[in-house]
């Protein structure tokens, strides 16, 4: 396999041809924040948190979907990038109704963790306060659109790993919503196998186990890695 050599944050690194900047960075212990990306799923570049500066002009590229190239120069930590990432989290927080203190995923939430890590101590934009529904028609699980960041992890894990494609996205912009099947209540979905993969994949408290109380919804995002290793390598590592 051909190897590409590039520079990330002044450090010379090499990566196999076809690898993404994100993969190359992680291989070399360089942390780039991500939200929609989940190992084992296809990448969509939806959240834009992994933006990096590429080349002398500092062109903004999403690290999760940009392939490495020979002599590429990448910067992952610049004042501009830090500001943009912070702003992305702030915009996510304003777009829906995230109330950490009474959320089922409090202390177990990737959005919350990112906000803390990126220094989001207040929000500079106006909240939209949309009126959004909670769907708890499913026997085991519920989805609260107030807490959804439209990362589409649930859509991808359902389609690519479970193979049933119950979830999809309807609408555009601020009207975009995660829907089950033909926009019917989750409990009436003819395709859902109740496998619960979307619950574990969801980065926030948007998809949760029924009956969860405040801060009780711990998620095990390693389950996907386990599942893929089991399938691909026939190894059941627990």
């Amino acid at each position: 396999m051909a190897v590409r050599t590039l520079t990330i944050n002044e450090k010379l690194v090499s990566a196999p041809e076809g690898a993404t900047i994100l993969q190359a960075a992680r291989e070399n212990g360089i942390d780039i924040p991500t939200l929609c990306q989940l190992d084992g799923l296809s990448t969509v570049g939806a959240c834009r948190l992994c933006l990096v500066e590429v080349g002398p002009s500092g062109r903004l590229q999403a690290a999760c979907v940009t392939q490495v190239a020979e002599e590429m120069v990448v910067r992952t930590e610049t004042p501009k990038l830090r500001e943009y990432r912070k702003m992305i989290i702030e915009l996510l927080l304003t777009e829906r109704n995230h109330v950490c203190a009474v959320c089922v995923a409090n202390h177990h939430c990737e959005l919350q963790d990112l906000a803390v890590k990126l220094g989001v101590d207040h929000v500079r934009f106006e909240y939209l306060h949309p009126h959004l529904a909670v769907d708890v028609s499913h026997e085991l699980f519920g989805i609260d659109h107030n807490r959804c960041v439209l990362c589409t992890r649930c859509v991808r894990i359902c389609d690519e790993i479970e193979g049933v494609h119950t979830w999809d996205v309807s609408g555009r912009g601020t009207n975009a919503r995660i829907i089950s099947d033909l926009n019917q209540p989750w409990g009436e979905s003819p395709t859902c196998t109740s496998c619960g993969k979307c619950v574990q994949a969801c980065p926030t408290g948007a998809i949760f186990r029924q009956g969860s109380t405040v801060a009780e919804m711990e998620k095990d995002r390693q389950r996907l890695r386990f599942l893929l290793t089991a399938r691909e390598k026939r190894e059941w590592l627990v």
Binding site: A101, V102, V104, V134, D144, Q210, S212, T213, V214, A215
Partner: peptide, 14 residues
Amino acid sequence: EGRPLAEMAGITAR
């Protein structure tokens, strides 16, 4: 109004 029942204890405690 509109919240799941299980969340009510955490909300009303506030």
